[in-house]
Design a protein around this nucleic acid. Structure first.
Lengths: 160, 160
DNA sequence: CAAAAAAAGTTTGAGCTTGAAATACTATTT
DNA sequence: AAATAGTATTTCAAGCTCAAACTTTTTTTG
């Protein structure tokens, strides 16, 4: 394992900002994957579900009126066709329903069922506790700071 | 700067560290996905390859003697069977080779070919520039700090 | 109004991903 | 040596993911 660079050598000067960012990216990615992998495993073991399903349900839980497919894929930043498959399976399991939109026969609103809401409530509670555990090495203040830092560009990038 | 004593929004109370971490996680995840999505798109457009392939090549590039399949999946933190498929395709394309391990007929070492090294060199240069651009809102100093912060627990978790 | 353009979703094909089961060896125990 | 346990890797089924192509419906425009 190449873990020599941990020492932050004094040569991290202006010209090497690029290297610093690359290193940061690699570690951020590793950490993200570690957390995601844990979430995946626990969702499967304890709720017999998957991370993509959880993500979809989490998005829907915030919109009681439901979301259009396109809105959903926009929020989750995954492709259109991708959402179709996940929703298909959630419909089969009675977690969500597709509701026709009155004025537009192309679109439909996806909404959590009562069962879906109940399921999600249980999962979300566990999920928050897991995150709390998996990111325990960041205290509240640091977490707040990082939230802002990560959000900054999210704002810039998003065309809102 | 993280709002100190002033303002103390309800979320910033001691008991709500959990909420702070959750918010941080969601934004970190969003940012990670945004960067990954860009990398994916550019790798496809400019090098006709995928992110998993790049990741595998990057790992192999650091080990001239090659890596066993199990080591590779350990480093990349993906499942065993997953790597098999990616390597199969890289072999087809002449990017890597499987070399028999003398003493052990079960194992094989995976190594970049000359072509693989050349391909990777070009891709890695572009990749570093992309990261530099996509994370431009973090200066070198902040990037260094975050590298260390993210690495901290990587140490704990890693069983090597 | 009819043709063209745009929008909402689905389908498709290829590749990625996982966990579990299977295969093929190697090492250890009895 | 035979049985057992352990290791390295592949195979498998199910699900996720993307981009591109396609269908249907709505909106725009000539």
């Amino acid at each position: 394992m190449a873990q020599r660079g941990t020492e932050t050598t004094p040569e991290n000067r202006a010209g090497d900002a690029s290297k610093a960012r690359l290193r940061m990216w690699l570690r951020m990615l590793k950490r993200t994957r570690m957390v995601e992998s844990q979430l995946r495993e626990r969702l499967r073991a304890q709720f017999d579900t998957t991370l993509p399903r959880f993500d979809v349900m989490a998005a829907l839980a915030r919109y009681d009126n439901g979301l259009k497919m396109s809105a959903l894929s926009g929020i989750l930043r995954v492709s259109n066709g991708n959402v179709t498959g996940i929703i298909d399976r959630l419909v089969e399991d009675g977690i969500v329903v597709r509701v026709q939109v009155p004025g537009d026969r192309r679109a439909s609103l996806v909404r959590l069922t009562r069962k879906g809401h109940e399921e999600f409530a249980r999962q979300a509670t566990a999920h928050e506790a897991w995150i709390d555990e998996l990111l325990a090495d960041f205290d509240a203040e640091e977490a707040d700071t990082l939230s802002e830092r990560f959000d900054a560009v999210t704002q810039r990038e998003k065309r809102a």
